[in-house]
Design a protein around this nucleic acid. Structure first.
Length: 780
DNA sequence: GGAGGCCTCGGAAGG
DNA sequence: CGAGGCCTCC
């Protein structure tokens, strides 16, 4: 029992777990049990009487934090709930809320998401009357974000030679000014963007030594996961926090650094040892995930990168099958091949669908794959679609909630001041925004004093604005008094939003209404259970126990959630379809990487610089190392891109893999029986275990089948199931439902339109359905 | 104020 | 090609 957590660890893993004090770097190869070491390390600390309150572990995703926390709980007898474990952003947001007054914020500050930030940048560009085709909001915001991640404030920005030079060359010399205004506006709105959560934490710790001392003393042990993905400001904060005890552990794999484009600095891990001369480094090189063929093939690829820490990943696993390289005629053929392959493999080898992953470089590739899977009736899940919280109706509702908590929130205010319609037009809103900006006031100040201001707005509109302001104020005073759910329900009704959506009887309108219901349900759940899925320590810094279930706490948590957090806990086993980026950290029995073509993977934007190409290669390394048993690498000779069929060359990465691990015998031409077979000579070329991919594609691309275009355009019949008028449904009727099939109506209760039917479905059993949503067809 | 036409643009994505 | 933003016209 004593040291259970050490059993089953290999030698380097054990060493890494036992080294308690001082700076530690753990270089963890793909599939080498990184999470295992991190969690066991923390369990070891707790076992050795380190108080969980004194441990801070930082991750990049909520999912990683949640998983680790539950694993630690399982490992240690002590409850791990008091561990400070969470994402950089959630942990720092928590610190900032409790120290907000130091920075002249209130603790209920709003967190602007990217859309809010973009909208604010657009507003400023408009106000400054700049050409928005030159000053593109997304470009400007990226520059600002990059500056923030590199600890450059607006004043430094304007003095910074690199930034101003680059802005001048690109014809956008005023970005520094926009940056400055943008920050002012965030401050006036009592809001922070995601980058502020980092840079403001840094400022807080730098400017207030007493605060720094408090947190340094508290966090006796720091651990950072995925260290290769940290940026400058993240590392700077971690260094500051660790300065007192220097018990800092970083875990990462330089070969899997794939986020340079959002500011990650691979130098953090490459140079870590020079910042901490006493550093103890441990290398986890034994791979437990993949076959020898996969491990060695991936090694041979990543060996081409110059910029890396020396290590050699190896495995004791079986040698396994060779990696299958698949050539297809078109993107659609490729997709069909993949679907067929999965279908057969599932059938023959009894592999569950969720053990297959289809990976691609760009989201645009998902479409043909989705079509092919649907054709074969293979269940699948695509990652990275529109998230629940990105839907318009949810954002509208949330904007009201945000305003209730923080009326200064300018973006929320602009969003709903005239939705539902209350005769406050864009012109009036623009005037108020400009006036607020000129007078250095928040928009809310203008709105609440609209009658006293010399703004050229009709008295009629002013009355409407006044009414709106009163409504928001009435919500605001209830934040402290009501539970999240009670207040949310009140706002949903009194804002008029619920009525507005309820009156919309189009299919979309009904779905919007249902989504709002779902949101309200989730708030009810939060009110009852007090959590949304975010991992945070139980310790309450605000020591404000009554506020635990209030709407502002709900918002604070939601603003840091992401798509992957609302677990759509599907019982069904589905093929996993996603970009390589989102596959990081996951593993599957079979992995199929599609679109292995020049200008796609590697991306055409990466091929002009060695650094970019190396990152692209690391990305491919990540893709390969997701596979446990079988890996397919697939490319097409023709691909639809931007509406045109493009002739593609196989990816250079295919040539970079040692060909002894590859098998080129498969090709996707055979999957469509109707398709003309390959001519003999072409098959010949393909059978050679040669490295000359580039030479055979040219031949193959000459003949485009006559039905090429037709196949590409073929759309799968949309299953738009039409229900009959719900008022026609009566007890005793035979009805049909889209999902449940045919059934009999046993009972109807309630009055239309809120009537609820109890129906026995032949296939699915007894269900209760709201008639207005159920889309039932009368059969008899 | 909303529908529909026109133009533009096209990399990946955590919080 | 298709999504999204913007403008125009009713």
């Amino acid at each position: 029992m004593e040291k259970d957590y050490l059993s089953g660890l290999n030698d380097p893993q054990t060493q890494a777990v036992l080294q308690m004090d001082g700076p530690v770097m753990i270089i963890a190869g793909a599939g080498s049990g990184k999470t295992r070491v991190l969690t066991h390390r923390i369990a070891h600390l707790i076992h050795n009487k380190v108080d969980p309150f004194n441990v801070l572990a930082l991750t990049f995703t909520n999912k990683a934090a949640r998983e680790m926390k539950s694993r630690i709980t399982a490992l240690s007898n002590e409850d791990a709930k008091n561990l400070w474990m969470g994402t950089f952003h959630s942990v720092f947001a928590r610190i900032l809320r409790s120290e907000a007054s130091f920075l002249n914020y209130t603790s209920s500050f709003t967190i602007y998401d990217r859309d809010d930030s973009l909208s604010l940048v657009k507003t400023i560009i408009k106000e400054k009357q700049l050409d928005d085709s030159v000053y593109k909001a997304s470009v400007v915001l990226n520059r600002i974000s990059s500056a923030k991640n590199n600890l450059i404030n607006p004043i430094d920005y304007s003095n910074d030679i690199d930034y101003s030079e680059q802005d001048r060359i690109s014809g956008r010399p005023l970005i520094g000014e926009i940056y400055s205004m943008y920050n002012d506006r965030l401050f006036k709105a009592n809001a922070m963007d995601f980058d502020d959560l980092l840079i403001n934490t840094y400022i807080l710790l730098k400017q207030f030594p007493e605060v720094l001392y408090r947190y340094q003393t508290k966090f006796k042990y720091l651990l950072v996961d995925e260290f290769q993905d940290t940026n400058l400001v993240q590392y700077a904060i971690v260094k500051k926090l660790a300065a007192q005890h220097e018990n800092i552990t970083v875990v990462g794999d330089d070969s899997q650094s794939i986020y340079a484009f959002r500011g990650a600095n691979i130098q953090n891990i490459l140079n870590f040892s020079s910042d901490y001369p006493d550093l103890k480094t441990f290398k986890l090189e034994q791979n437990y995930r993949s076959t020898i063929n996969i491990v060695e093939a991936a090694n041979s690829l990543i060996d081409q990168n110059k910029n890396r820490l020396p290590k050699k990943v190896w495995t004791q696993n079986e040698s396994g099958n060779k990696i299958k390289v698949i050539k297809s005629y078109s993107d659609n053929d490729e997709a069909n091949f993949v679907a067929n392959q999965i279908f057969d493999s599932h059938l023959q080898n009894q592999i569950h669908y969720d053990q297959f992953a289809i990976l691609y470089r760009t989201n645009a590739q998902s479409r043909s794959i989705e079509e092919a899977l649907r054709k074969k009736n293979i269940p699948y899940r695509i990652y990275g679609g529109m998230s629940f919280y990105n839907r318009k109706e949810i954002k509208d509702m949330m904007a009201y909630f945000r305003l209730a908590v923080n009326p200064k929130d300018e973006e929320a205010l602009k969003r709903v001041i005239n939705y539902p319609k209350r005769e406050i037009g864009d012109t009036s809103v623009d005037k108020m925004v400009v006036y607020a900006s000129q007078q250095n006031k928040s928009l809310w100040e203008v709105v609440t004093n609209i009658n006293m201001l010399p703004v050229e707005i009709s008295s009629r509109t002013k009355t409407k604005v006044d009414q709106f302001a009163s409504k928001i104020m009435s919500f605001n005073v209830q934040v402290e008094k009501l539970s999240a759910y009670d207040l949310a329900m009140g706002i949903a009704n009194e804002s008029g939003l619920l009525r507005e959506l309820h009156n919309d009887k189009t299919p979309e309108g009904i779905s919007h209404f249902e989504n709002i219901q779902e949101l309200l349900n989730s708030i009810q759940e939060f009110t009852l259970n007090g959590h949304t899925g975010l991992v945070l320590p139980e310790e309450d810094l605000n020591s404000d126990k009554d506020k635990k279930n209030s709407l502002d706490v709900y918002l604070q948590q939601i603003s840091l959630l992401t798509t992957q957090d609302n677990d759509s806990s599907d019982q069904t086993r589905q093929v996993q379809v996603m970009t390589v980026h989102s596959a990081k950290g996951l593993e599957f029995k079979t992995v199929i990487v599609t679109g292995m073509e020049e200008n796609l993977f590697p991306s055409q934007l990466s091929i002009y610089s060695r650094e970019d190409l190396e990152e692209e290669r690391r990305l491919f390394y990540v893709a390969m190392t997701r596979a446990e048993k079988q890996l397919y690498l697939s490319y097409a000779v023709n691909r639809f891109r931007w509406g045109k069929a493009i002739i593609c060359e196989p990816s250079r990465f295919l040539n970079e893999i040692d060909s002894t691990y590859l098998e080129l015998s498969q090709d996707a031409f055979s999957v469509r029986p109707s398709q003309v077979r390959l001519s003999e000579d072409r098959q010949d070329v393909f059978k050679k275990p040669s490295k000359s991919f580039a030479s055979n594609h040219t031949q193959a691309s000459i003949t485009v089948p006559s039905n090429f275009k037709k196949i590409a355009k073929a759309k799968i019949k949309d299953s738009s199931f039409e229900g009959d008028d719900p008022s026609l449904i009566m007890t005793g009727m035979e009805v049909e439902h889209e999902k449940f099939g045919k059934g009999k109506v046993l009972n109807i209760e309630g009055t239309f339109p809120n009537s609820k039917a109890t129906i026995f479905f032949n296939g699915a059993g007894q269900k209760q359905l709201l008639l207005k949503f159920a889309k039932l067809k009368c059969v008899r």
